[in-house]
Design a protein around this nucleic acid. Structure first.
Lengths: 337, 337
DNA sequence: CTGAAAGCGCTTACAG
DNA sequence: CTGAAAGCGCTTACAG
């Protein structure tokens, strides 16, 4: 029913191997035969079966992209679509397909990853998160399977290639920016430090305070939700003297805080300053627009994919990690004290 | 190097076909042989090569999910992650893998889709958009390739299965809601009607006005951007008498409008009411929280995937389309006149 | 209940 | 420059 290389060969009166070589545009086939074969391919409506090619070449030309939704809010974080777009663009250019895995349940993800690797469905993997004691990570390291991470690994960092911002520096820079604006009482609202990114940003915040000789730190760790935001805002406002600025680690978190402040009729930036990370469209569209650390999600994704492809093309390459500089974009959510 | 079915067969002293049957848990193999073979599989660390299986069974157990980014802002629209999650969950449960295609350039997407179909890389496809005269759509219909759409097709709607809201009704309901609140001058801000969803929602808006005997319609079609929002708000405010409510068709659009109103120091809902569609976290987190038409993106995605799997399992099934009811969620962005 | 054989649709040394 | 042959790793009638 489907037309195969043999059908083309028969009709063109050549061997199947010749047809195969024409498909690959092999240099040693005469222009004449190529044209003849191509004409027949046209006539018969032939299209190579990729599955068969993959089986014989032992290469799937496919990359698995693993995303872990540790909580519902991560689903909406605009960081991921932008990073995925970067991965997508690079891989498309390099003729790789993308097989996605995303889920909440750790063991579901783990099982899918194992199947993909063992079943030879992918040539490499990209992990979109970095978490302490992650079974997927451990499995890939143990199998010595090619993969790269968007985010700094918590261990084996000499064996694994990753792409990340310098999150310590980024958070430190953001906090320093607020200090320069005259703030001295600055709160920090981030996520669970079992994720490397949150651990680093907390540390950056602390570092800035220390360097500025500020004694009191205000660290809040929470899932993003409206209720949590109300809670934190209440706690912050109850302090004497109260903080005048809030560093948050992403846009949804920042929006939840803006929302809680709005309910309390607190004005941003007049009553309190708020900052975010990521710099997607949300920072620009929120009211007021958010001063944000632009971590360049697209480029992070792009470079993560590029590192993986480089590794696949040259398995013996020296490992290298890439740090994408993060830059502050100032908008109306902060002002000089 | 990699251990195959043959290696297992040899060591277990059975035929390769027997090993294959053990993997498939074939009922006619004795428990005894099964155990023997499984033990050897364990010892050797055998894992079936999925590529080989797919080749011989002529089935990829993979679905292609096509997303088209007609503009940058669509990248950040929280509708998509939620819908994709629904697709993901259903397909995982049914043991299908997901191959994603997304891009801006129409011909790039088209080329990838053709390759996937011709190359037998996928068993079916899901289209996450519906657009007039879309080459991908035409190709799939012409090939009679199994696919379902999230969104109502512009043509061939008898041949194609789709899942959607009743967008005419949803927009009509939303407009009527505002009318019930006492608004009579209501503006509508949506997207290009070449996309079916926007065509329908415009129509629903019109329908509500007609039913309420309101003569003047205010329709704005625009890409989402801060500048466009400023522009539209300016136009709306310049009218005499000016509209007192704005229907927008998604959350990012609504946020851009809130943002422009905020700049103009116009208060929502006191000076003007604003509504949105989708009802992701953004509606809840924006300031003020948005009254939104909940279109249940997760369920839309889930049902779209389910329809496709049903079709694949039973190619002769009667076509059926699914409409997911949309429901208004009221929040603080509207109030009685 | 199990095995021998053919075949899925391709690629790639090896000859000539 | 092209062909015949083997093989990628599986599954599945067909026998027995």
């Amino acid at each position: 029913m489907t037309v195969t290389i043999k059908d083309v060969a028969k009709k063109a009166k050549v061997a199947p191997s010749t047809v195969s070589r024409v498909i690959a545009d092999h240099p040693k086939i005469t222009q004449e035969t190529k044209e003849k074969v191509r004409k027949v391919m046209q006539e018969l409506g032939y299209h190579p079966n990729l599955l068969a090619r993959k089986l014989v070449t032992q290469s799937s030309q496919t990359i698995g992209v693993i995303r872990k939704m540790s909580s519902k809010y991560l689903l909406s974080d605009p960081f991921f679509p932008e990073a995925l777009q970067g991965i997508n663009d690079l891989l498309r250019a390099k003729k790789y397909s993308i097989l996605t895995v995303n889920g909440e349940a750790e063991d579901e993800i783990y099982q899918e990853v194992v199947n993909m690797v063992q079943g030879k469905s992918v040539d490499g993997m990209i992990l979109l998160y970095s978490q302490y004691q992650d079974p997927v990570f451990d499995f890939l390291v143990e199998q010595d399977f090619p993969f790269t991470m968007l985010g700094k690994p918590t261990e084996h960092s000499n064996k694994v290639m990753y792409v990340d911002n310098d999150n310590v520096k980024a958070a430190c820079d953001m906090t320093e920016y607020l200090i320069q604006l005259g703030h001295t009482r600055i709160a920090y609202i981030g996520g669970d430090p079992k994720f490397e990114v949150h651990k680093d940003r907390e540390q950056g915040y602390r570092q800035a305070l220390i360097q500025a000789n500020i004694q009191t730190e205000h660290i809040f760790r929470q899932e993003v939700s409206k209720e949590n935001a109300r809670n934190v805002v209440q706690q912050i406002m109850a302090q004497q003297p109260r903080p005048t600025a809030i560093v948050t680690t992403d846009e949804l978190r920042a929006m939840s805080i803006l929302s809680a402040l709005y309910e309390q009729k607190l004005r941003v930036p007049d009553d309190i300053a708020v900052t975010a990370f990521t710099n997607s469209m949300l920072s620009e569209l929120s009211s007021p627009p958010l001063t944000t650390m632009d971590i360049h999600p697209f480029q992070l994704g792009y470079e993560t994919a590029k590192s993986l492809v480089d590794l696949l093309e040259n398995p013996k390459m020296m490992k290298r990690n890439i740090l994408v500089p993060a830059t502050i974009v100032t908008r109306e959510s902060c002002k000089k004290m």
